[in-house]
């Protein structure tokens, strides 16, 4: 059975950086399909197609072997802890996972709070940091627009990804601590990679080559 090989590409911030990097390479995404609402996009290589997925869903598609390869942020990987192979740090999409609070609020101010509330999409990384710092806090789980939480009193601070800091600045927030760093990673389905390395490794090398060819 010679099935089409699927690569899972992220939508959103990472996808916006990735798609131009692939233009003109053997894994360039079909422009007409990209403009449509289709989520399975042919590439310039016959027999290889891309799935466009939300970052939080992407690791599941790869772990289940639906997609053989994928590109996802290391922050998502660390948060989900799926059984995946992580073949390379692709370098792009670099950002920080930071504790951010309203301007004028320091880390010591947050430490001193008897009941600290932190809003985040990253509860696992936040809990690990709190344990390391010997702090306790109430975690407020959010799935988007975390910047609003300190402004509207939902939380004292947030733990979120910061790339340029522009969104933070626009909301009057500042970074008070860096919890970790994130970048795009090439991931592979363990089963596909170990049982069919002759099919999957060349595809991984093609993808790495396509991304390296760009300045």
């Amino acid at each position: 059975m010679n099935q089409t090989l699927l690569i899972a590409f992220p939508k959103g911030r990472l996808g916006d950086e990735l798609v131009p990097l692939l233009a003109g390479t053997p894994l360039a995404l079909d422009a007409a399909a990209l403009k449509s609402r289709v989520l399975r996009i042919p590439t310039a290589t016959p027999g290889v197609a891309a799935l466009l997925l939300k970052g939080a869903d992407l690791p599941r598609y790869v772990a289940a072997g639906v997609a053989s390869l994928g590109i996802v942020g290391s922050d998502t990987l660390d948060e989900m802890d799926m059984d995946l192979l992580e073949l390379a740090d692709l370098g792009f999409g670099a950002c920080r996972l930071s504790l951010c609070a309203k301007a004028g609020v320091s880390l010591d101010d947050l430490r001193a709070k008897p009941h600290l509330r932190l809003a985040t999409k990253f509860p696992k990384a936040t809990e690990a940091w709190l344990a390391h710092e010997e702090l306790t806090a109430e975690l407020v789980p959010l799935s988007s627009s975390a910047e609003l939480a300190p402004l509207l009193g939902l939380a004292d601070a947030i733990v979120d990804l910061v790339q340029t800091g522009g969104t933070l600045k626009a909301h009057g927030l500042v970074e008070t601590a860096i919890l970790g760093r994130s970048s795009a990673r090439l991931v592979a389905a363990r089963g596909a990679y170990l049982s069919e390395p002759g099919r999957i490794r060349p595809l991984a090398e093609m993808l790495l080559g396509a991304l390296k060819a760009k300045p």
């Binding site: 059975m1 072997g65 389905a189 089963g191 596909a192 170990l194 049982s195 069919e196």
Partner: peptide
């Protein structure tokens, strides 16, 4: 027959040679 030098599954249990059987396209050993 393939050699997988980086087989670390069950490292807390295994102490020496390891064996894993796969079928092409299978998602699990």
């Amino acid at each position: 027959l393939r050699v997988d030098l980086a087989d670390v599954a069950g490292l807390g249990f295994y102490t020496g040679p390891t064996l894993r059987l796969w079928a092409p396209g299978a998602q699990q050993e």
